[in-house]
Simulated assay, not measured.
Amino acid sequence: MTATTDSAVYAARRDKLRQRLLESGHQALLVSHAANRFYLSGFELHDPQCNETAGYLCVAANGRDALFTDARYRDAALRLWPAKDLCIYGAGRYASIVDFLKDRGVSHLAFEPSSLSYDTHARLAEHIGLTPMHQAVEPLRLCKDADEIARLRCSAAVNHAVMDRLPEVLVPGRTEAQAAWEIEKLFRELGASELAFSSIVAVDANAALPHAIPGQTVITDGCLVLVDVGGRRDAYCSDQTRTVWVGGNPPDRFRQLLDRVRRAQAAALAGLRPGLSFREAYGLAREVFVRAGVAERFTHSLGHGIGLETHEGPSLNPSSEGTLAPGMVVTVEPGLYYPEWGGARWEHMALITEDGCQTL
């Protein structure tokens, strides 16, 4: 995937990372995490699969940044990157990378320990010294710039449009898997380039599984359905959840369940603001459940950051360190789960503003 973002934006992002390298005493960082690579260069948001890479970006303290990839991506890379700073490696991948870097004054590399495989590390270490640099790029991605926020708004708008059409998707006689397929088609028809993650459509007791996989359970006239879906538009993700009753006259336990979840979400959205700790954000929703005596049924975080990835920093959970800041975009998705009969979650994306938050 390529991006329409101006090359100057990517260069400015690399300059911010370069400053971090200088402050920490590193010569260069080898960027192996796909979303970080894309954020800094516009090159290939996705790797082909978990055991195959589209390439590596090296951001150097001396300003001589380099992009490494194989022949499949040569033309795509040249649309974004100067030929003099591009290394097309072949069978001798690791030696080629190191030789290219040493010619540019880099004799030691920092690397991303959460994304560089053990095998790749071992092979590179035969040729150059390596030092882990934890969370090197991710802090730069926490607060979105104006262009990123605009893209996230567009992505969220597609998701809202999909949710508006749930009544025509969740019809009796259709299986969870069939409904998920209809939802995927809607995302594409409404402007998404792909799903942001595999859709969750869960009927009755299956809705008690926060990451349920759509199967052959049939939607009936008189059932609970949880739908958690997202799409990608202009490279940025959306993520929303709704829980609905199919048919008339939902039972009191469903009404009460959904009311508690939505009150918890409303409390969180009313309280999110700059300076609030991630833990405190989680506590805004949990306190609603504590007062209702159901807090033990709230089994996950309040939400997570969203952008180039569906799940990125920050995490709004009771053990997370840090505070909210303007420009962060987070999901707010409290839920309650009862394995015997079902669960409910209600989710929106929220932009942290100068004095509160705004639902996207």
Rank of each mutant, 00 (worst) to 15 (best):
A150Q: 10
S319D: 14
S301F: 12
A350R: 01
T220S: 15
R20Y: 02
F68Y: 07
L57R: 04
S41Q: 06
A83K: 14
E184C: 07
L116Y: 06
A270N: 11
D99F: 06
A268N: 04
S96N: 11
Q240R: 13
F278A: 01
P326L: 02
V201T: 01
S320Q: 10
E138M: 00
P132K: 00
R255Y: 07
A267R: 14
L272E: 00
S315I: 12
P334S: 07
E287I: 07
A266C: 06
R141N: 00
L22M: 11
D47I: 09
D252F: 11
F38D: 10
L269M: 13
Q135P: 00
Y94Q: 07
T217G: 03
E312G: 04
S315F: 14
A34M: 07
R153C: 07
R260W: 12
A54N: 09
H26Y: 14
S41W: 10
L22W: 10
G191L: 12
E296M: 08
S320D: 08
T69F: 05
A202K: 03
R188L: 15
Y73M: 05
D164M: 10
L224R: 14
A264R: 11
L29N: 01
D145P: 12
N51I: 10
L170M: 05
R260N: 11
G231F: 03
V158I: 15
P251T: 00
A110Q: 02
N62H: 01
N249F: 03
H211W: 14
L257P: 00
A11M: 12
R255C: 13
C58D: 01
H348P: 05
L257M: 13
V9F: 00
D221E: 15
T243K: 05
S41V: 03
A207N: 01
A161H: 07
V31R: 01
A179C: 13
D355G: 10
P214E: 05
A177Y: 07
A83T: 10
L272Q: 01
E182V: 09
A264M: 07
K84L: 10
F254W: 09
S193L: 11
S115T: 14
T175L: 04
